[in-house]
Structure formats: structure tokens, C-alpha cells
């Protein structure tokens, strides 16, 4: 790239950006797949959430901080993280309907190896995934911002 356009200077080289454009969405989808299949295969909310966060981190590394923050700003990330936590807590507290905290009150007994028979477990997975993905991403943002603030001084 011999382009003197200022916008192109932010972030990494042309190759990296192109590859990122191709792979970021795939990684995101893979993360979602892992989350949704958490109850029948290895993985689940935590691992899937990590993969989702990594797709955002990849965008951030390739295109620079500002473009990634336009997709998911810092304040929004903080709110979303709490939403994830509250969602988990609410589902767990709904377990009182079945008599106990955290009980799987939805399905009496699921069939093994089928996707839609796990009662509340997928919802727990989704809540954890939101929390982990946003939490990891915001840790990354905070570290980047800390370093940036130091440079400007």
C-alpha cells in the first residue's frame, strides 16, 4: 500500500485487514455455535464467550481502537456485562419455581445428544457467554486506553 491516505495508516497492513474482514465473522459465528451447543459437546458459555471476544479483539488489532469501539463502545460494554450477570441470576432465581435455586425447571428430563432438550442450560450458557465476551473485551479496551493515555501525556 503506497497510499498516503491518513485513514489507511491506522491499524495494521492491508493483508491483515483483508484476512480479518474474511475471518472475523466466521470466528464470531463459531463462537456462537460453541455457545449454543454447550450442553451436548465440549465448550459452552465460557469457551464460546472467549471466542466471541477474540473476534472483536482481532478487529481491534487489525483496524485500530476506534473502529472496534464504534461496533461496541466502552459504556455499552459495561452495561452489557451487567446484563449478562443479571440474566444468569434471574434464570437461577426462576429455579425457585421448580423448588430450588439453580434447578432446571424447564424440562423434566431431556434426551441426550439432541439440541432442544436441555431446559434452562442453553440460557445459562448464553448469559455466561454475554458476560465473558463483553468482560474480556472490556479488559482489553481498558488496557489499551491506559496505554494510550500514558502516551498522550
Amino acid at each position: 500500500m503506497v497510499d498516503s491516505n491518513k485513514k489507511e495508516e491506522i491499524g495494521m497492513s492491508f493483508m491483515v485487514k483483508t484476512v480479518t474482514r474474511l475471518t472475523a465473522v466466521v470466528i464470531l459465528l463459531f463462537g456462537i455455535y460453541i455457545v449454543l451447543h454447550g450442553h451436548i459437546s465440549p465448550g459452552g458459555g465460557f469457551a464460546g464467550g472467549l471466542i466471541i471476544a477474540l473476534s472483536f479483539v482481532q478487529v481491534m488489532i487489525a483496524f485500530g481502537k476506534d473502529i472496534a469501539l464504534r461496533k461496541l463502545s466502552e459504556a455499552k460494554a459495561a452495561v452489557l456485562e451487567s446484563v449478562g450477570g443479571l440474566l444468569f441470576l434471574t434464570i437461577a432465581a426462576l429455579g425457585f419455581l421448580g423448588g430450588h435455586f439453580l434447578i432446571n425447571f424447564f424440562a423434566s428430563k431431556g434426551r441426550p445428544f439432541t439440541l432442544f432438550s436441555a431446559g434452562t442450560i442453553p440460557f445459562y450458557n448464553i448469559a455466561i457467554a454475554i458476560k465473558v465476551a463483553v468482560g474480556l473485551f472490556s479488559i482489553f479496551i481498558v488496557l489499551v486506553i491506559l496505554k494510550r493515555a500514558k502516551k498522550e501525556e
Partner: peptide
Amino acid sequence: FIISLAAAFLIAMFGR
């Protein structure tokens, strides 16, 4: 657990 954790999350959400 529920009360203290919910309070923490709610404060993180709306406290700002």
C-alpha cells in the same frame, strides 16, 4: 447471594 450480587450488577448498570 442473590441480593448482594443483584445489587452489584444493578449499580454497575444504572449507577453511572
